[in-house]
Write a protein that binds this DNA or RNA. Structure first.
Lengths: 102, 102
DNA sequence: TCCATAAATCGAGATATTTCGATTTATGGA
DNA sequence: TCCATAAATCGAAATATCTCGATTTATGGA
């Protein structure tokens, strides 16, 4: 977990919102039946919710992935993104360690 | 504590370093005798350590202050900056609340 | 094979941040 | 009052980020 990239990724209100939305699948339209077993949300749904262009959202998801906040899983033509809870926790621990005295 | 400004202020390695240095007064040269009773470090000492121009460091300290990470106290021609531990903790709590599920 | 759809990548203009040196403001001392 | 010092502010150049539309790549279905 690169704290530099992670903070840069968080330095944008929509990217932070996306991380929040991804906490709960029901923030997005229901998955297609053939994707019912998959965790994660496809880029199109995130784009729709974020109200930004497809390329911007794809870029954002790439930044969040590089930062370690999400993982991507490709299924056919779809890429499903979901939060990486372990990495999120370890980022928070690292920031705490850096910011807190003792 | 404005989480937006706070993350922006942290989105710079030298500003994060300054926050770390300020954990311990002994990271800087000893205070002048007439300032011995004061907490905090003057801009000149921080500048020397950061190896950046005076105006840049003054600007950085202003950003850290607006973000709530430090407080400034003027004494004569000197401005002494020190960490605002309470605010730092409440920032960490806010980020945790935003990033963590439940 | 050809087409449609999803997502990634590219290129560019607009905007924001970084960082500087120069100037200004505030203060204290001779 | 005049000068020296500390810090803040200003203006600008260099660099980075944001965001888009257009294009490319990957995949699946007819």
């Amino acid at each position: 977990m690169d704290i530099e990239k992670a903070i840069a990724a968080l330095n944008n209100p929509i990217r932070r919102k996306i991380l929040e939305w991804l906490k709960d699948r029901s923030n997005f339209p229901p998955a297609l039946p053939e994707h019912a077993d998959l965790e994660g949300v496809c880029v199109g749904y995130i784009q729709e919710k974020a109200q930004l262009s497809q390329s911007t959202v794809s870029n954002y998801m790439g930044l969040l992935k590089q930062a370690g906040f999400v993982v991507a899983e490709r299924h056919g033509q779809w890429t499903f993104y979901r939060r990486d809870e372990d990495n999120i926790r370890s980022f928070l621990a690292a920031v705490q360690k850096e910011l807190l005295t003792q």
